[in-house]
Design a protein around this nucleic acid. Sequence first.
DNA 1: TCGTCACTGTTAATGCGTTGACAATCTGCC
DNA 2: GGCAGATTGTCAACGCATTAACAGTGACGA
Lengths: 210, 210
Amino acid sequence: MTSQNKPSLPVIKRLPRYYRYLGEMEKEGIVKVSSSELAQVMGTTASQVRQDFNCFGGFGQQGIGYNVKLLREELGKLIFARQPIPTILIGAGNLGHAMANYLVEDKRGFELQGAFDVKPEMIGLTLCGVLIRDMGELGAFCAEHNPRVAVICVPRDSAKKVARQLIDLGIRAFWNFSHYDFSIDYPDVVVENVHLSDSLSTLSYEVNNN
Amino acid sequence: MTSQNKPSLPVIKRLPRYYRYLGEMEKEGIVKVSSSELAQVMGTTASQVRQDFNCFGGFGQQGIGYNVKLLREELGKLIFARQPIPTILIGAGNLGHAMANYLVEDKRGFELQGAFDVKPEMIGLTLCGVLIRDMGELGAFCAEHNPRVAVICVPRDSAKKVARQLIDLGIRAFWNFSHYDFSIDYPDVVVENVHLSDSLSTLSYEVNNN
DNA sequence: TCGTCACTGTTAATGCGTTGACAATCTGCC
DNA sequence: GGCAGATTGTCAACGCATTAACAGTGACGA
C-alpha cells in the first residue's frame, strides 16, 4: 500500500498492455491473477510485474494475488482522465482517417471534436462524425471548444508551422505522426511520437540482418 | 575500421533517424559532419553517436569527422537490401490504405506486390496501384510471387488465424498493427510491432499526470 | 618538419531498468 | 489456534545502455 517513486517511461509504456490483457481476462470471467500469470502473457518476469504495480502503491494482496477487476479499474484511473480529452485532428488524408478511427474507438481516453485540412476538396466532408474544416477556422474553433490534444497527420514541412500555431492556441499535448521534433522547440509539451517510416526502416534492417 | 560487437536494439532503432537527418544534410549541400553536430540534431551525446557507428566499424576519419554522403550510403547499405523486399498487405481498410502509402513511398525498402481482404466490396479495387484480392487467393499468390514481408492490418481476432496462414506460406517477417503477439507462437520470426491504441493510452496517461 | 588543433575510435565509469531473493502476510486446513 | 502453502511488497544484485575520458590520427600552419 505504500506509494513508491515515480514510474519510469518503460513502466508507463507497459500500463496499456496490462490494462488490455486484464480486460480480456475480465471478459473470460477470470477473477484473480498472480504476478507470474500476468508475467507470462506479458512476456516478462513476475518480478517486473510486481515492481511495476508497486510504483503506484501495489494493488495486490499478499498471499492471494491481484483481483482482476480491481486492478484493471486502478490502472484505468491512472491511464484515463475522468472525462475524455477533447481532441482535434490536423490533416484528414489517409493517415488522418485511420487515426481518427483509433481516436473514436478509445472512448474513455479521447473525444474527437473536429478535423482540419488545407485541401479545399476535403472541407465540408465528415470524418468519424465530425466536420472537416479549413485550417483558417482553427483559431476560432479552439477559442470556442478548447481542445487539449492535437493529432498531427500532416507532412513534415507543414508540421513545424502547424505546431507553432497549435502551441500558440494553447494546446500542450500531441499525437505526432510527422517527423517534426517538438521537443527541440517546445521541451515542455507532452508528445507521443509515432514514426511509421522509421519503423519500416527498422523492419528492413532486421530482415536484412537475420 | 575495426568491426565491433553486434548492435543492440536501441542502436538499430536510431539508424533510420541518422539516415533521415543525413539525407536532409545532403540535400542542404553539407559535406562533412562531426559526431557532436549529429548528436545535437538527434538529441543525444556525441559519445553515443560515435559508439553507434562503431558497432558497424566506424565510418569516420579521425581528426576530420564524417563525410555526409559516404556515411549515409553506408547506413543505407545496412538498412536496405539490394532489391526492395516483396511485400503484401493483409487488410485493406482505412489503416491498410494509409500503411500502403508508407510502403510505396519507401521505394528502396519495400515493393508492394498485392493486397488482400475478406470484404467482398473491397475485392477488385486497387490500392496504391495493386489489386485487392480475396483472402482465398492468398496461397496461390504467395506460391507465385514469393513475398517475404506481410503487413498485418486486420482486427485482433482474425490476426492469429491470418498469422498462422502466412507463416505456413513461408513468410517470416511482419509489420504488425494488430494486438496479436507473434513472439509467443513463433519466436523466430521478425516482427516490427506498431501498437497504435497503446500509444494513445500512453498519451492519455501522460496528459493526466503532468 | 614539428607542433597544435580537431575529431574519431576505444576503453572505462556511470546510471538505470530488470531480475533475483527474502521477509511479510493472507488463506485454509488440521 | 497454529502450521503449511502461496503470493505480494521490497530491497539488493546484476546487466546493459549511455556517458565520460583519453589515446590515436589526420590536417594545417609556422
